[in-house]
């Protein structure tokens, strides 16, 4: 199935969970947050959050700014 990760289309197996998608980007144990279709998903719920076709995932971190 196709999902969007930070605006880029990505092919993943059906049933892929959010923790797997984030782990593909970073191994950082903190400082990262994820939103699924404009809703924040707490880190503790990532392994239990199965993604579906067309889901939009945003993975954010802190950068220099302000």
């Amino acid at each position: 199935m196709t999902i969007s990760v930070n605006g880029e289309p990505r092919e993943v197996a059906a049933g892929t969970t959010l923790d797997v998608v984030v782990a593909a980007l970073t191994s950082a144990p903190s400082g990262v947050a994820a939103a699924l279709n404009e809703t924040v998903v707490p880190r503790g719920q990532w392994p239990a959050t199965a993604l579906g076709e067309g889901d939009r995932v945003e993975v954010l971190t802190a950068v220099q700014g302000g």
Binding site: N6, L25, L60, A62, V63, Q64, G65, G66
Partner: peptide, 14 residues
């Protein structure tokens, strides 16, 4: 700090 999409290629962290 600002919140932005995680870029795996960026080295170092504020």
């Amino acid at each position: 700090v600002a919140m932005r999409r995680l870029d795996p290629t960026v080295q170092g962290s504020v």
